[in-house]
Simulated assay, not measured.
Amino acid sequence: MANNNESRPQGDELVTVSAEKEVIDSKTDTPSSPKQAKSSGNGLLWFVVVILFLIVLSMAGAGYWYYMQQQTAQQQTLNAQQKNASDLNAMVQERNQLNAKLDEITKSNNALNNTLNALQSENETLALQAESALEQIKNMEGRRPADWLIAEADYLVRMAGRKLWLENDVRTAILLLVNADKRLKSLADPSVLPVRAALAEDIQTLQQLNPVSPSSVALALTGMVAQIDKLPLDTFEKPKDVDAQDNTLSESTDDWKANLAKVWDKLVGDLFTVKTIEGPVEPVLSLEAQYLLKEQLRLQLMHAQSAALKGDAGLYNQSLQYAQTLLIEKFDIETSQVTGFVNAIQNLLNTDVSRPLPSELKAQKPLEGLLDNRVKQVFGQGASAL
């Protein structure tokens, strides 16, 4: 661009110089050949100038185009560098993320390896336990039915103890002990003979207890309580006057004085009675007193009933003796009803209701020890619930 601007003044100067020469030439009237030679030289000069000018313009355009191409290429290079830098940053971040994930996967893999090692060791332990259990099962062949019979016998002995101490049912307890002995007898094993001996001793002890049934005594007392209201009391009764005169009126008119005296005596006798009685005087019992006496007798019989069920011989005898005393003193002992009641109470007094139960069964502990040796050691702690 600068070259083009600098070349333009030179051309103007050349045009000015040529014009001045033409004016001078026209004024001096020189020959035509030198003029022609000058005009041809000026044309060539102008041609060269024009060519140079075009060359300069083309060079300027080429320079401008090259400059623009360089700017565009530089901008593209810069954009490519920025894109490459962003891509590189993205790749670096992705690489960091991949490294973090790889670290997590490595940690997880290590944890899984540890778990796998633990599971393998546990599996080996379980395999050893299974082999040991199989070996024990092989050793147990032919003994498991016997072991369960021992457990069943132990259960029967426990139930016998509950029946004996909680329900005072001696008969059922004896039956349970006999069934337990049958279970052990079916084993045909000499090692259970000491337990069977203890069972036989327990059965013999229970059989030697008082055979009187407390329930039978209690039922007899219940029947007697229901008859109390029918028993007559020993109350005061007006004695018969054997010395009483005959107050029957005569139909004869001649006996008017005797009839009048009889009427008078009857009126006076209805109002006042005077009688001399030899012996102790007993008061007349009121209805409330009679009711209380019968209720007192009923209460004593109920106490005796409760004592019979509990096996308390002292309270039983005391209640019956007090009831017998009430019958003799307050009831009419001359009647057959009261006499039969007194005899029934005397029979109950002669009945022994005491029943000293043993504090424990001698076969229980040996049977538990046998069960521990035969069952629990084989099955481990799983048999502790038996």
Results as ranks from 00 to 15, higher is better:
331 F>Y: 14
325 T>L: 12
305 Q>E: 13
330 K>Y: 14
328 I>F: 13
298 R>M: 05
312 D>K: 04
322 Y>I: 06
318 Q>M: 00
305 Q>N: 14
301 L>W: 01
321 Q>K: 06
291 Y>D: 15
328 I>Y: 13
300 Q>C: 04
332 D>F: 15
313 A>E: 10
321 Q>E: 07
296 Q>D: 10
314 G>D: 00
327 L>A: 14
291 Y>N: 13
294 K>D: 07
328 I>C: 11
305 Q>D: 09
331 F>I: 09
302 M>C: 09
319 S>R: 01
333 I>L: 15
310 K>P: 07
303 H>R: 10
332 D>L: 15
323 A>I: 02
331 F>C: 12
323 A>P: 12
294 K>H: 09
300 Q>A: 08
299 L>D: 03
301 L>Y: 02
332 D>P: 02
329 E>D: 15
321 Q>I: 06
316 Y>T: 01
299 L>M: 07
331 F>M: 13
318 Q>R: 01
317 N>M: 04
305 Q>M: 08
314 G>W: 00
326 L>K: 07
296 Q>C: 02
321 Q>A: 09
312 D>V: 05
325 T>Q: 11
298 R>S: 08
310 K>M: 05
304 A>R: 05
318 Q>N: 03
327 L>E: 12
324 Q>R: 15
292 L>H: 14
316 Y>D: 02
311 G>W: 05
311 G>M: 02
303 H>K: 11
296 Q>P: 00
299 L>R: 05
319 S>L: 02
315 L>G: 00
330 K>P: 03
294 K>Y: 07
328 I>G: 14
309 L>C: 12
313 A>L: 10
293 L>V: 07
324 Q>M: 13
322 Y>N: 06
311 G>F: 02
308 A>M: 11
312 D>C: 04
314 G>Q: 00
307 A>F: 05
326 L>F: 11
319 S>D: 06
305 Q>L: 05
307 A>N: 02
331 F>P: 11
300 Q>V: 03
310 K>T: 09
293 L>E: 08
308 A>P: 14
292 L>Q: 15
307 A>D: 04
298 R>D: 08
318 Q>G: 01
298 R>E: 07
314 G>L: 01
325 T>P: 06
307 A>K: 00
305 Q>C: 02
300 Q>H: 04
314 G>C: 01
320 L>K: 01
292 L>N: 15
311 G>P: 12
292 L>Y: 14
312 D>Y: 04
316 Y>S: 02
324 Q>W: 14
293 L>A: 08
291 Y>V: 12
301 L>Q: 04
299 L>P: 03
325 T>Y: 07
314 G>Y: 00
302 M>V: 13
301 L>T: 02
292 L>D: 15
320 L>D: 01
308 A>E: 11
294 K>M: 12
312 D>E: 09
318 Q>W: 00
326 L>P: 14
315 L>Q: 01
297 L>N: 08
327 L>D: 12
296 Q>L: 03
302 M>E: 09
295 E>P: 06
318 Q>V: 00
298 R>F: 06
303 H>W: 09
323 A>N: 03
305 Q>W: 08
308 A>V: 08
312 D>I: 05
310 K>F: 03
320 L>H: 03
317 N>F: 03
298 R>A: 12
322 Y>H: 06
323 A>Q: 03
327 L>H: 10
313 A>F: 05
293 L>N: 06
